[in-house]
Simulated assay, not measured.
Amino acid sequence: MIERIPIALTGYQDAAATPGSDVDTAAWRIISSPADCEAADEAIIPCTTRQPDVARKLLTECQPSDLLRVTGYLTLPGTADGGIRLDVDSVEILWEPPLQEQPPDHPTEDHSDRDRAIQALAEALTGLPCTTTAGEPPDVRINIGPIGLHGLDIGNCHSIDVTTTHTDQLTSAVTAMLATLGSLPPQAGTGLNALSPADIAGFFDDLDLTELTELTGDADASRPEHGVIGPRTWDDLLGNSPGAATDDNDR
């Protein structure tokens, strides 16, 4: 006798559903990815249904990469070389990708930074150090995935179940982070480049005090009859500065 085990699974639809051999039946596969599992631990489960409403939904509404919640009975093989099959009684679409596949002429892009960021965010949310009430069941699902999803991006999709307590604590943490970022001085815009203490010390180290004394020590050099020899000499040494120019009317 073939054993039938009641089960509920969440997974991504692997490929488009196909009509079964009988009327109002359908067959498809889902990729089951339990929380915290590695890619090598994912399982592809073949599914069938004899429920007319479920079959129509799979054939007309569901598409590859949809996140599905299916319930039914897992049928174990009667022989060692047989295969398992999930006979589905109900299906719920939990999340639909914004785009099933890229256009044919879409250029190949490097999404390694994006994929790394998604993975890091998923790990951070999965490892939330939050305190929960004993026995509080998860009641909020956070789905993370890339925009423009196609078949190769299924491995970058994550579904994380958290409790209301987790959600409230996460909201408080994000609000505090935004408040901290908002209190920091703006980083963009134009302005003067700040000099470090080392830059300022280096500037004065380059000055020749003996030369300065020789240039400014002669009182006759600053008299009107000698014109603008003093200021120009300073400009030659230190560089031109606004307001240092003198015309003939100022003599």
Rank of each mutant, 00 (worst) to 15 (best):
T180C: 07
G82I: 06
T163I: 00
R4P: 00
T79A: 07
G127H: 10
L215K: 08
C62F: 11
L149D: 03
E136P: 00
N143Q: 04
A15G: 04
N143H: 13
C62Q: 13
A176N: 12
L74I: 03
E225F: 08
L149M: 10
L128F: 12
T60Q: 15
A40F: 05
V174D: 00
P224G: 03
E211H: 09
F203E: 06
L125I: 12
V70Q: 00
P146W: 13
S172Q: 13
G239Y: 05
W234Q: 00
D53Y: 13
F204L: 13
T171L: 10
D236Y: 14
L58E: 06
E123G: 07
Q63F: 04
Q102W: 15
C37W: 04
L212V: 14
A173C: 06
W234G: 03
G135H: 08
P138H: 04
S159Q: 09
T213S: 04
G20Y: 07
E136T: 12
L209P: 06
N193C: 07
P185M: 11
E92T: 15
D41C: 01
L59R: 00
I31Y: 00
S21N: 05
T79R: 10
A117K: 04
A8P: 00
D218T: 15
L237C: 05
Q187S: 09
V23E: 06
D53R: 15
A221W: 01
R141D: 04
T246D: 12
G239S: 01
D22C: 01
T210C: 01
G20Q: 10
A122T: 05
L68Y: 01
A43E: 02
T48P: 00
R69N: 09
V140S: 13
D235I: 09
L58V: 08
L128G: 11
M177V: 08
G217I: 08
R56V: 02
T49G: 08
A120Y: 07
T60N: 05
A198Y: 05
T71D: 08
A17F: 07
D161K: 03
N249V: 08
L237V: 08
F203T: 04
T213V: 03
A39K: 11
Q51E: 05
A15W: 11
I45V: 09
P107R: 13
